[in-house]
Design a protein around this nucleic acid. Structure first.
Length: 763
DNA sequence: CTTGCAATGACTGAT
DNA sequence: TCATTGCAAG
């Protein structure tokens, strides 16, 4: 077990303490993943059957990577027997196995957020409620948090506190919507994301035999990112661990950023009460970032009240100060950041993948995309509209879903008239009304039941339309027959062709249409790969492919061509990642911290933790930017710098202004804006505003005067660099020289391209 | 039932 | 700005 040598003492202790409850409080960049990986490897090495280990991770990608790492450490193929994945994917599998106990089919559909909202919208309409008072997203949030606290629709209705609360907020009929939603999900054989956890709790509660089976099986339980678990997840873990209490949770209260999803920071704060005999390990040495970044992050998070006491420190170098840049508009912000990236790439020989641009909201990506495209810098955007959420993909997947589970209401509504076959809104509305009419609590009737048994369930649909519906039903049934006859790829292709989707998209020659067609081809190619990736004498069926397609995200699959690209993502999705150069952008009041978070201390503290997460992603350099005005919904609004900039200890900051000439001529409007916000900016930054760096494209061109003198540069010369300060030339390449290695007392050796570095020779 | 146009409202975050 | 929705006409 030589591998244990590579750990520091607290890490090693956390790994070797395998029996009993333990909590690992892991500061940012302290090697948390290493501890988890080594711990599992060590367990297996000590003779624990991998089959008895359950590890709950934050993403499925993290699980895959961890398995590979474990195999590398201990060799052999044992690692693949560990049950590892996100809460949602692990328990979705378990639920499929025992679905009959809950009255669900094993091929139940997983409704994603879109599906849930669309169903809620339909219900609100059916109940003849105003969808402005009952906004689907709001209603969904309410139901979601109820489920995450294990409150069923019936319990919701019976809870006078909740009902009163709803009545006070002008939404007295929310419980009715919840009841109808629960009923229709069940009739459709569908579970939403929250159900995957909620129903797992129900399964364990109502079927002690099933619970005992998994308690015995999962003798060792590990939970990553424990600070971001909600009550429902907390309870699942608690129940499973009740028999052996060999539970190890890993997390950092300072990085809890998912309360909107029901995450409860109390879970980690209360761990010691739940397991009085637990041991706590603290990982406080940061291996990721420079002293500047670690200390800056510490100075920010110190402003929060609720914390587990710990001191994150590092042995790494001091590093550069955190640059703060003000720009006039969001577009300029895009240009400035992109130019800085370009410059750094050249000066420091950095790869594209060394850079990340992190923002608070997905909508902010636009200006950076535009600027990056102009400079031909390759980038990859995570989040936002993922591949599986695109309309054309969801349409084809809806056919697959319907084939596997014809009761799926959302899938049916999506494709019953796509491609167009003359089945309109009124007919579908009649089907929905009929289904509701014939449904009872014991015997739910799905939309599919209505359209397949018209004599049993008359819905008053004209015979002409009924014929069209019958043709559609025949088609779906013919797909269903093929489910276990042909492999996933063959069936998928059959459906794509015979449903008419492929033709419909092929006929659309607009650029968007072409791209949609290509996306469908990409999906089919993906299914082909899936089909070919199973063992020799096995067949991959379409239902196998569909199992967790709803749980896949962009972050889960990394394409080969995305290896060396600049990363653009929200701070939320950057959790757990690290980059040498990080740009945190849009640091403005009402954006970050978000407007919605200004009402309470706890919400503001979560925004601050989010900022802490962002800062601690950086290894070498962090840059903060904000714009004094930006476009929102098409019109210009002014904004003030974020309070978070002020909260960083001044000694770590390097406050600069952006180049005034950037972007050429400015409109009168912008000049006025600048004047208006100027005073506010000054009051925030009482420190001197050094006119440090001009970053517009015109300015990055070398000045002829400087260029000439650099031709005489020799090893041993003392030089001055704008950012690194005074240094000594220790190496040169080319004649005349094009590249120099310069030693800077503060930052060490740097390779600089003379074309860009604008060195000044001092002697 | 479908099409085309005008009006409207959306931006936290994501399994 | 952009995508979705509501309404009138074919």
């Amino acid at each position: 077990m030589n591998y244990l040598e590579s750990l520091n003492p607290p890490q090693r202790k956390a790994v070797k303490h395998t029996e009993g409850a333990s909590m690992v409080i892991a500061g940012a960049g302290s090697g948390k993943t290493r501890v988890l990986t080594f711990r599992i490897a060590y367990l297996i090495d000590s003779g624990v059957d991998a089959f008895n280990i359950l590890a709950l991770t934050f993403t499925n990608k993290a699980a895959r990577e961890m398995k590979t790492r474990i195999s590398d450490i201990i060799g052999g193929s044992e690692a693949k027997n560990v049950t590892m994945g996100t809460f949602h994917s692990v328990f979705a599998k378990i639920l499929r196995f025992h679905s009959d106990k809950l009255g669900y089919p094993s091929n139940f559909t997983i409704y994603d957020t879109q599906d849930s909202r669309s169903l809620l919208k339909a219900i609100i309409k059916d109940l003849k409620l105003d969808d402005k008072t009952y906004k689907p997203s709001l209603v969904h949030g309410r139901i979601s948090s109820a489920k995450n606290n294990l409150i069923s629709a019936a319990a919701y209705e019976a809870n006078s506190d909740i009902v009163t609360e709803d009545r006070m907020s002008g939404k007295p009929r929310l419980f009715e919507i919840y009841k109808a939603y629960e009923k229709r999900c069940f009739a459709a054989g569908a579970m939403d994301f929250d159900d995957l956890l909620y129903k797992t709790n129900v399964l364990f509660r109502d079927h002690p035999d099933v619970l005992h089976f998994y308690q015995r099986r999962f003798r060792y339980i590990l939970v990553d990112e424990y600070q971001d678990t909600n009550y429902s997840q907390y309870l699942i873990v608690k129940k499973l661990a009740a028999m052996y209490e060999n539970i190890c949770v890993v997390g950092d209260d300072a990085q809890s950023i998912y309360s909107f999803r029901g995450a409860n920071i109390e879970n980690i704060l209360n761990f010691k009460n739940d397991y009085p005999k637990h041991t706590t390990f603290k990982l406080e040495q940061n291996y990721r970032s420079t002293k500047t970044i670690v200390n800056a992050a510490n100075s920010v998070i110190a402003k929060n009240k609720d914390q587990i006491e710990k001191t994150v420190w590092t042995d790494n170098t001091e590093g550069n100060k955190i640059k703060v840049i003000r720009t006039l508009t969001d577009n300029e912000e895009g240009k400035v950041v992109t130019n800085l990236i370009y410059e750094t790439k050249v000066n420091e020989q950095a790869a594209n993948s060394d850079f990340a641009i992190l923002y608070r909201t997905n909508a902010q990506s636009r200006s950076f995309e535009e600027a990056l495209r102009k400079l031909n810098l390759p980038y990859k955007i995570y989040g936002g509209l993922s591949f599986y959420q695109r309309k054309e993909i969801k349409d084809l997947l809806a056919y697959f879903r319907l084939t596997a589970n014809p009761k799926d209401e959302e899938a049916l509504k999506r494709v019953i008239n796509y491609p167009k076959r003359g089945i309109g809104k009124t007919s579908i509305e009649k089907v929905i009304v009929a289904a509701d009419h014939y449904s009872t609590d014991e015997n739910p009737v799905s939309l599919w039941d209505i359209i397949t048994q018209p004599s049993k369930y008359p819905a008053g649909i004209p015979s002409g339309t009924m014929n069209k519906i019958a043709a559609f039903v025949t088609a779906i049934k013919s797909y269903t027959v093929q489910l276990d006859k042909v492999d996933a790829y063959e069936l998928a292709q059959n459906i794509a062709k015979s449903s008419g989707i492929l033709k419909d998209l092929y006929d659309d020659k607009s650029p968007e249409g072409v791209s949609r067609y290509e996306n469908i081809q990409a999906l089919l190619a993906g299914i082909k790969e899936f089909t070919e990736n199973v063992g020799e004498d096995e067949t991959a069926y379409l239902s196998d492919f569909m199992v967790d397609v709803a749980l896949l995200t962009d972050a889960d699959e990394e394409k080969e061509e995305d290896k060396d690209k600049i990363t653009l993502m929200t701070i939320h999705s950057s959790k757990g990642l690290e980059f040498p150069y990080v740009y945190i952008v849009g640091l403005e009041e009402n954006l970050f911290p978000s407007q919605m978070a200004l009402n309470s201390r706890t919400e503001l503290e979560e925004e601050r933790r989010l900022f802490y997460v962002a800062l601690t992603r950086a290894e070498k350099n962090a840059t903060l930017t904000y714009a004094t005005s930006r476009y929102r919904w098409g019109n210009l609004i002014t904004s003030e710098p974020s309070r978070f900039i002020e909260e960083i200890d001044k000694q770590h900051l390097d406050v600069a202004k952006s180049g005034r000439s950037s972007g050429g001529g400015r409109s009168l409007n912008q000049v006025n804006l600048e004047r208006k916000t100027g005073s506010a900016t000054k009051s925030v930054f009482s420190t001197k505003q050094r006119n440090l760096k001009r970053v517009s494209s015109a300015d990055t061109k070398p000045k002829s005067g400087t260029q000439a003198s650099l031709l005489d540069l020799k090893v041993g010369n003392n030089v001055m660099h704008e950012r690194f300060g005074k240094g000594k030339v220790v190496g040169l390449e080319g004649s005349p020289p094009v590249k120099a290695t310069v030693f800077f007392p503060k930052s060490g050796n740097k390779q600089l391209l003379l074309k860009f570095a604008r060195l000044e020779i001092l002697d």
